[in-house]
């Protein structure tokens, strides 16, 4: 569908708002030194940590977020609305608030962190804390994807599969999950991108310890005063990864046939 003409200037303004900063970043880059900036020890350390933690966080989101999406779908009426609002809170919460919340749950004197600390396990300001922070902010993407896909998918094929003698586990693995494939891919990609870019919750809950909790966004934030060229180089790496991942794997779920 084509809209009225007066949408065009507004769309152009919107595009500029999004694209101009990206162009500005690219214009500021010192392309000649790009490679040496990225391969500097601090940069490589941050990138490697980011990649590791984001992958683990994404796996965690898959393992926990898919069942969570199913559970949310199984709920009814008002209970579901409340549960959804709580589960999606990290999506709209300022990340620093999320970090603070994580601290009071898993920190040294937190709800769960206190007893854990007594047992000799400490989470805050470790790499585990980075993963938890990333999973916390990325989880809603998976939950939303799975829940909305289940809502449009229905349960007819599952019922037929049951008459053919299949167990619930087999039906989940062979009928439901394959049908949810596009939704799972979308959820995974968005969760990974969100985990990779996590900053506020990580800084609050995990700190900024080089090699342990200083992920790329934190490294960029630190370097922007002392070594702006390195900050821009790392930013471009994240930019390229984000755009590539979304372009390759993200497709809107609606309008795609389940067959």
């Amino acid at each position: 569908m084509t809209g009225p003409r007066w949408l065009v200037p507004l769309a152009v303004a919107g595009a500029l708002l999004v694209a101009l900063p990206l162009v500005g970043l690219l214009a500021r880059a010192s392309w000649g030194e790009m490679w040496s900036l990225i391969t500097a020890t601090a940069s490589l350390e941050a990138l490697a940590l980011s990649l590791r933690t984001s992958l683990v966080a994404t796996a965690l989101v898959l393992v926990l977020g898919v069942p969570l999406g199913f559970a949310l779908h199984a709920l009814q009426g008002r209970v579901r609305a409340v549960a959804r609002a709580v589960l999606l809170a990290p999506l709209v919460l300022p990340p620093v608030v999320g970090g603070l919340a994580l601290l009071y749950a898993f920190g040294r004197r937190g709800l769960l962190g206190g007893p854990l600390e007594d047992a000799g396990v400490s989470i805050a300001y470790t790499t585990v804390a980075v993963v938890l922070a990333q999973a916390f902010v990325a989880m809603p993407f998976m939950v939303v994807s799975v829940e909305s896909a289940l809502a449009t998918h229905g349960s007819r094929r599952e019922a037929i599969a049951a008459t053919l003698g299949a167990s619930r586990t087999r039906i989940l693995a062979r009928v439901t999950l394959p049908a949810l494939g596009p939704a799972l891919a979308t959820g995974t990609v968005l969760a990974f991108a969100r985990a990779l870019g996590e900053f506020g919750a990580t800084l609050t809950f995990a700190g900024s310890l080089a090699g342990v909790t200083r992920t790329t966004p934190l490294e960029i934030y630190l370097a922007r005063e002392t070594d702006p060229d390195a900050a821009v180089a790392l930013s471009i790496v994240l930019l390229v990864v984000a755009v590539t991942v979304v372009a390759v794997a993200y497709r809107p779920v609606a309008g795609r046939a389940v067959r």
Binding site: R156, I160, A161, R174, V175, P178, A179
Partner: peptide, 12 residues
């Protein structure tokens, strides 16, 4: 076993 009107073939 039910043979449904919409066939209900699985995504495989």
């Amino acid at each position: 076993v039910l043979l449904a009107q919409d066939d209900a073939l699985f995504p495989m």
